Amino acid sequence: MENRFFDIDNNVYLNGLYIAALLVNVTSTYKLEEINLKLFLMKNPSVLLNLCKYLDIPINRNIFEEFQYSNLQADMSKYLLKVQVSGLMETLNFLYSKGLIKLDYNKNMVSSTEKCQKLVNNEMPEKIRCIASKINELFTKRDMKSIKGTLFIEKGDIYE
């Protein structure tokens, strides 16, 4: 566990923070596939920026720090073969154990709890809430199938 803070891709704490921000309200439930895609976009700002540009959805770059979208990982994102966040299930289990989410493995659904909403409203850094809000807005304007389809267009079209 001591090296967990340095393993950004599999960090249950960072992924948990992002997932909590992405779960909008207590009454909504989300498919695990949708949470995976949203978390992927949260962790890959360059992909999110390019996706919004491609879909003509305005997004302010100021909600990101430059190092988040202008780095080696961002440059390499054009070679991604799948939309997958490693450690997703471990993070969901962690959030469940803390009483922050409800999980239904039979239906592959997840929802937040009131405890999670209090955490997001009172403790969540503003920039993370803004990024999560923009991702959720993207999902209200486009369905998940079209978002995934756009990500899998020939890489040259969406990645410059």
Rank of each mutant, 00 (worst) to 15 (best):
F94C: 07
L22H: 03
N50Y: 13
S86R: 12
V83Q: 06
N121M: 14
I101G: 00
D75H: 13
K102D: 05
L14N: 07
L119S: 12
L23K: 00
I19M: 03
A74L: 03
C116M: 08
M89A: 05
G16A: 04
S86C: 04
N60L: 10
T27D: 03
N93G: 01
F64P: 06
L51T: 09
L39R: 04
K78L: 10
M89G: 06
Y30A: 00
V83F: 11
V120D: 00
M109S: 04
L39D: 04
L37G: 00
N36L: 04
Y30L: 01
N15Y: 02
Y105K: 02
T27M: 01
L51F: 10
L92S: 02
N71E: 03
L119E: 07
M109Q: 15
V110T: 02
L41W: 09
K53R: 15
L17N: 11
F94K: 10
N60M: 11
C116D: 00
C52Q: 07
E114L: 12
F64I: 11
N93D: 06
I19T: 03
N122Y: 08
L14F: 11
S28E: 08
I35G: 01
A74V: 04
Q117T: 07
E114M: 05
Y18A: 09
E65M: 05
S97Q: 13
N15S: 04
L17D: 03
S70V: 09
S28K: 11
N60S: 15
K53F: 14
L48T: 04
E123W: 07
L41T: 09
E90Q: 12
A20T: 04
N122E: 15
C116E: 00
E66R: 14
L119K: 06
T91Q: 05
R61S: 14
L49Y: 15
